[in-house]
C-alpha cells in the first residue's frame, strides 16, 4: 500500500500547501463578498446559490467563514512564530550563566502557573484588544511550553564533545547548538494551531 512513502508524504504536503495558499489568497479572490449585503436573501438555508446560507443581513456565510479563518490562521501563525522566537532567545540566554538560567526558570514557572487563558485575558486587558494585541498575547502566553524542552536540549548539547570543546557556550558556532533545537520548536509550532484559534473567541 505505502510502497512510496516519500511520494505519499509529498502528496499530503502538496495538498496542505495548496489549502494554505488558497486560504492566504482568499482576501484577493473573495473581494467584498463577506461584507456584501443582499436584503432580498436574508437568513437563507444552504442551497446551490448560497453554499452555507446567509445571515440576518443577507451576507454569504461561506465567504464570512473563510475570511474569519484566514484572519485566525494569520494570527495563529504569527503568534506561533513570535512565541518560538521568544522561547529560543530565552533558552539561549539561559545557557550563558547560572543566574540567568535561574531567572529564566522562575519566569517560566510563573507563566506556567497561571492558566494561559487567564494570562491571555490579563495581557489583552493591558493592551486593550485588537488583532495585534491578540497576536502578542498568544505569543507571550504560549512560549513557556517549548522553552523548558529547548533548555534541556541546550544543556544536553553543551555537554556534547562537539560543543564542550569550546571554552564557553557562546563561543560555540551557533549552528551546532541551535539547529537541533529546531525540532521541539517546530513541534510546538504545529501543535499551537487550535490554541491560537480558540482565544479569538474573546477578541
Amino acid at each position: 500500500m505505502n510502497s512510496q512513502p516519500r511520494l505519499v508524504a509529498a502528496g499530503y504536503a502538496g495538498v496542505f500547501g495548496l489549502l494554505v495558499l488558497l486560504l492566504l489568497s482568499s482576501s484577493l479572490w473573495l473581494g467584498d463578498s463577506p461584507l456584501h449585503m443582499q436584503f432580498e436573501a436574508r437568513l437563507m438555508p444552504p442551497s446551490a446559490e448560497h453554499w452555507l446560507g446567509t445571515d440576518a443581513l443577507g451576507r454569504e456565510l461561506w465567504a464570512r467563514t473563510l475570511a474569519g479563518l484566514a484572519l485566525s490562521f494569520g494570527v495563529g501563525l504569527s503568534a506561533a512564530l513570535l512565541g518560538t522566537l521568544v522561547a529560543l532567545s530565552l533558552a539561549s540566554l539561559a545557557m550563558l550563566s547560572p543566574i540567568l538560567d535561574a531567572l529564566v526558570s522562575l519566569l517560566i514557572d510563573t507563566l506556567l502557573s497561571v492558566p494561559h487563558l487567564i494570562l491571555l485575558l490579563l495581557i489583552a486587558f493591558a493592551l486593550r484588544g485588537g488583532t495585534q494585541a491578540v497576536i502578542i498575547a498568544v505569543a507571550l502566553t504560549h512560549w513557556p511550553k517549548p522553552c523548558p524542552l529547548a533548555q534541556s536540549r541546550a544543556t544536553q548539547l553543551a555537554k556534547r564533545p562537539l560543543c564542550g570543546d569550546f571554552e564557553r557556550v557562546w563561543q560555540t558556532p551557533r549552528i551546532y547548538c541551535l539547529a537541533p533545537l529546531a525540532a521541539p520548536c517546530a513541534a510546538s509550532l504545529l501543535g499551537r494551531r487550535t490554541a491560537a484559534v480558540s482565544p479569538r473567541h474573546f477578541a
Binding site: 506556567l112 502557573s113 497561571v114 492558566p115 494561559h116 487563558l117 487567564i118 480558540s198
Partner: peptide, 9 residues
Amino acid sequence: GELFGGSLL
C-alpha cells in the same frame, strides 16, 4: 491550568 482555562470557556 488547562482544565481551568477550559472551564472558563
